[in-house]
Each structure stands twice: as structure tokens, then as C-alpha cells.
Design a protein around this nucleic acid. Structure first.
Length: 463
RNA sequence: GGUCCCAUCGUCUAACGGUUAGGACAGAUGGUUUUCAAUCAUCUAAUCGGGGUUCGAUUCCCCGUGGGACCGCCA
């Protein structure tokens, strides 16, 4: 059996994390079975579709490594084909024109609401040979849905879903302006792309019953369906693009690594025993739809951070630096070329303090910037005694030709004894002088990550 | 309101019908340390309720309850 999967977002907003997970599951299944993974941009809503969103979607997917086969499909380019299928459905007796005005429909809905009964289009024009066609109304084309009986879909995640056909109305497949609606376009495209597995969000479940009828009317093979539960916001409702930390850009902005996000998303609603960390290869090998749970899961930022931390700690420093460099370029200030080597050298301790690329960037600021600002609260800590101590340090430090951990340790231990203080008594003022804050990396790490001149310059400034 | 779906620690989840209900994140406590972190050790914490079926139910069935999705000429 061939596996042809697809991710079909509409470019009406930035890609959010639920969409990324849907794409991931499709991608994983395709890779696992040596199949295809396509990207289809569903841009038939001309009003809301924007080129910038399409770009953002494509870039986000490529950022997280979900590369698609072939060029992306642009749905609007296939409209002619969709209309041909609409024609064919008319010929086969599965579609009809409906001349109800929008007001008429609206009235019906209100009436139903008042009576407390569910609205379904009343099929007025379904068999309306003797109805007078109004001149001022342009028709829509509706699909002739089944009226009686039940329909079942065998969902690969949800199991069998059984509904009564009476609740599926005669849905619109061609708008007043003649353009195809989602139900038609998606079905026609899935068929012509030979999609074998449609993996999408839970919110499409009802659509499946509509689309299935189109497949059957056209005598096309019906693909497999898998509806995965939605991701909920921390509040517990469907994730919307307005939620904070919903779009993938929100995560990129704080410096989440693509692999970490991929790993997090994989584990959200899917598990393989007690395993938490999955390399890309492992996830391809181990992923299956059977392991996908049926209940929605909530987003958990601290979990994302923790996984990200894990990936940062385990990343080769050269690669980590490339991420950092790119991150700084896009979201902060570019890293000056002259600072590159000292940053790479310092990454081994910087990364141990970081949950995100932004943390690394912030902690590395004292290397990146030639001027350091001392926080107001920390200036207070530099009293006369600590100034005296760091001046003594400076005096001795200048004599050292090549600073290393050993000779620095000797120097500082000497100062501790001489001043009858402890490590903190020497370390804290030094850290403030060199980094601008009482928080920061270990004091030896700081000194050795700066040039001798730079250390001298910064300490000399304190007086 | 109608239809459909779901239900294990706060969160993500594991557990052929037989486990002291496991792991991870978060939280708490202690050790280490040079500040913040990190790290190590320990701890707290869950099968929504009620009925069945069964020798035995987290697991199967029914009913409640709670949560969610859908109900567009959006996708």
C-alpha cells in the first residue's frame, strides 16, 4: 500500500503549533512508509488568503524540517478542475442549483433557533421542477446529500464514527460567484493528488462525512482518514491564532530549537512507552497512528522549555553556535565577527545555564558588547572594601602573562586569605565589574572568556 | 440547543482484565557549589461519580457528570 499524505493549511493566518503537529504526523507517516508528503495551500478564500501567510507557512515548515515533496500545490490554480467536477455532479444527479437568497436562509436559521431545533437547509430546491426561478437571485450549487440511513467512517485514530445522514445538509459546493467551496476543492484535490491518508484535526470530522459522499458520487476511491485531537491552550479551549505562544514564530522568537519543538509536538498526544526524547530517525521508525490518543492535550510551556534545554545541552557547540548566530541575526543584534571564537569557546558553560537561545544570548552579552552596563542594584554592592579588593586583583592580574585557571585560582585564593574574606567577597565584585551583574557564569569562566586587555579595561573603570 | 468525540497525578502520558498504578515536566525538601543556574538524592501528587459483567476492572458495557469539537456561500 502506498502512503501519500498531505498537509493542507489555508494561508489566512500564521501557522500555529497545532498545524505544525498535524504536518508532523503526516510527514512522519509518509517517511515511515517511504511515501510522499505534499503541501497544499488552500487559498480559495480570496478575501482572507495572504501571500505573506503562505510564505510564513512554507518557512515555518522548512524551519522545523518538514520538507515536502514536489512543489507546493496551490489550490486556487485548480479551480477549473473543481468546477468540472461540479458539472459532473450535476450530470450525475448529485448536485442542484439553489435559488434561496441569503436573507431567506438567515430567516430559516433564526426560526430554528427560536424553536430550539437544529438547522439544516430545507432542501427547497432539491427537486424543485415547478418552482419559479427568481430573477434577482444568483444560485449556489448544492450537493444532494443522503437523506436517510447512517454513515460510518473508520477513522484510524478515532475508530468507527457513526452518524445519521439526516444531520448532513445539502451543502454548498459552488458559491454564488461560481467559485468552489472547501468541501469540493479539498476532495477533488485529494483525489487528483492520489492522497491515501488524510490526517487532520478533529475539527474536520463532520466534513469527512460530506466529502465521503462526493467521493462516492464520483465513484472515486475513498482515502483513509485519521482525525487527531486538537491542541488546547493552557486555558483548555481550541488553540486560536490569537493565543499567545500559539504560532510557531512565537517559539522561534524566544529561541526554541526546531528539533526540540518537533520532539515536544511528537509527544503531545502520542507516546511510545516511557521514552521522552526521540531523534528524528527514531520518531520515523517508532511513530504510528495507533499510539495517538483520542483526547485533546494542553500546551505546556515549561515542558517545551525543558525539552529545549535538553537539546541545547546535548548539541555540539559548533552547531549550537550556528543556531545562536542565526537567532541573534534575526531577533537580536548580529554577532560581531571578532567575537565569534570567544563565544564558541564559552558555549560549553553558557549552554549549561540556558533553556533557550535567548538565554544564551543574554548570558553572552558581556562578551558581545564592549560596553557593559552595571545594574543599579549591583552598583550598591561595590563598596569601598570590594573596590579595594578588585584593585588588588587588578594589580596582580596585570602581572600574569597568560591567564589560566591555575594561576587565577592562586591569585584569588591569595586575595581571600589576605582580606580575610571568602570566595564571594572576591568573586562578587569581580563579576559585577566584568559582567555588570551579580548573576552570571563562573568567575574563572568569565575572566578566561575575555581578553586580558578587556579584563583590565573593565576593572579599571570601577573606582 | 442538536450531533459527534473524549475522561489516569497540576500538565504530557505508561500500564495482554491480575502492577505497592510507572515515567517525564512542574512543585517541595536536602546535598554539592562561587552568585543565578546547573547537578545529585528524596518526597508530595491521579484512575470523575454510580451501576453492572467478572474470581478479579484504570482497562469491557450502561447511566450520570465534566470537558471539547462541529453546526458558514471559512478552511
Amino acid at each position: 500500500m502506498s502512503f501519500i499524505c498531505r498537509f493542507a493549511p489555508s494561508p489566512t493566518g500564521p501557522l500555529h503549533i497545532g498545524g505544525v503537529r498535524t504536518a508532523l504526523f503526516n510527514w512522519l507517516l509518509a517517511k515511515k512508509h517511504n511515501g510522499k508528503f505534499y503541501l497544499r495551500i488552500e487559498d480559495t478564500d480570496k478575501e482572507r488568503s495572504k501571500e505573506e501567510f503562505k510564505k510564513q507557512i512554507v518557512e515555518s515548515l522548512s524551519w522545523i524540517g518538514l520538507n515536502h515533496d514536489d512543489k507546493e500545490f496551490i489550490q486556487s490554480k485548480n479551480i477549473i478542475k473543481h468546477k468540472e467536477v461540479a458539472e459532473a455532479l450535476i450530470k450525475k444527479g448529485f448536485a442542484y442549483e439553489c435559488y434561496c437568497s441569503e436573507e431567506e436562509i438567515k430567516k430559516q436559521k433564526e426560526k430554528c433557533k427560536k424553536q430550539g431545533i437544529p438547522y439544516v437547509y430545507n432542501r427547497k430546491w432539491r427537486d424543485a421542477k415547478d418552482l419559479q426561478i427568481p430573477k434577482n437571485v444568483k444560485p449556489v450549487l448544492r450537493f444532494k446529500s443522503k437523506i436517510s440511513g447512517n454513515s460510518i467512517i473508520k477513522d484510524l485514530v478515532q475508530g468507527e464514527i457513526n452518524i445519521s445522514n439526516s444531520i448532513i445538509e445539502d451543502f454548498v459546493i459552488l458559491r454564488q460567484d461560481g467559485s468552489p467551496t472547501y468541501q469540493l476543492s479539498a476532495t477533488v484535490d485529494d483525489h487528483s493528488m492520489k492522497v491515501s491518508h488524510v490526517i487532520r484535526g478533529d475539527d474536520h470530522k463532520i466534513n469527512t462525512f460530506k466529502q465521503k459522499q462526493i467521493y462516492e458520487a464520483m465513484e472515486w476511491d475513498v482515502p483513509n482518514f485519521a482525525h487527531i485531537p486538537l491542541i488546547h491552550s493552557e486555558k483548555g479551549s481550541k488553540l486560536s491564532k490569537r493565543d499567545k505562544s500559539a504560532t510557531i514564530d512565537d517559539y522561534i522568537k524566544i529561541g526554541i530549537l526546531p528539533d526540540a519543538l518537533r520532539n515536544y509536538l511528537l509527544r503531545l498526544g502520542w507516546a511510545h512507552k516511557d521514552k521522552e526524547i526521540f531523534t528524528l530517525d527514531e520518531s520515523i521508525k517508532l511513530f504510528d497512528l495507533k499510539g495517538v490518543g483520542k483526547s485533546p492535550s494542553k500546551l505546556d510551556m515549561s515542558r517545551i522549555l525543558s525539552i529545549n534545554e535538553h537539546y541545547i545541552k546535548n548539541l555540539n557547540e559548533k552547531i549550537l553556535f550556528e543556531f545562536l548566530k542565526k537567532y541573534a541575526q534575526n531577533h537580536k543584534e548580529s554577532i560581531n565577527l571578532s567575537k565569534e571564537t570567544s563565544i564558541i569557546k564559552s558555549l560549553n558553560f553558557l549552554k549549561n545555564k540556558a533553556k533557550t537561545l535567548d538565554d544564551i544570548y543574554q548570558n553572552a552579552k558581556y562578551i558581545l558588547k564592549d560596553e557593559i552596563k552595571i545594574a543599579a542594584e549591583d552598583i550598591k554592592l561595590l563598596d569601598t572594601n570590594s573596590k579595594k579588593i578588585i584593585n588588588e586583583f587588578l594589580h596582580e592580574f596585570k602581572k600574569i602573562n597568560a591567564p589560566n585557571k591555575e594561576n587565577l585560582e592562586k591569585l584569588i585564593n591569595g586575595l581571600i586569605v589576605k582580606n580575610k574574606t571568602n570566595f564571594k567577597g572576591v568573586g562578587q565584585p569581580l563579576r559585577i565589574a566584568l559582567v555588570g551583574s551579580r548573576f552570571g557564569p563562573g568567575i574563572y569562566n568569565i575572566i578566561l572568556s575575555l581578553t586580558k586587555d578587556e579584563v583590565v579595561k573593565r576593572i579599571s573603570k570601577i573606582n
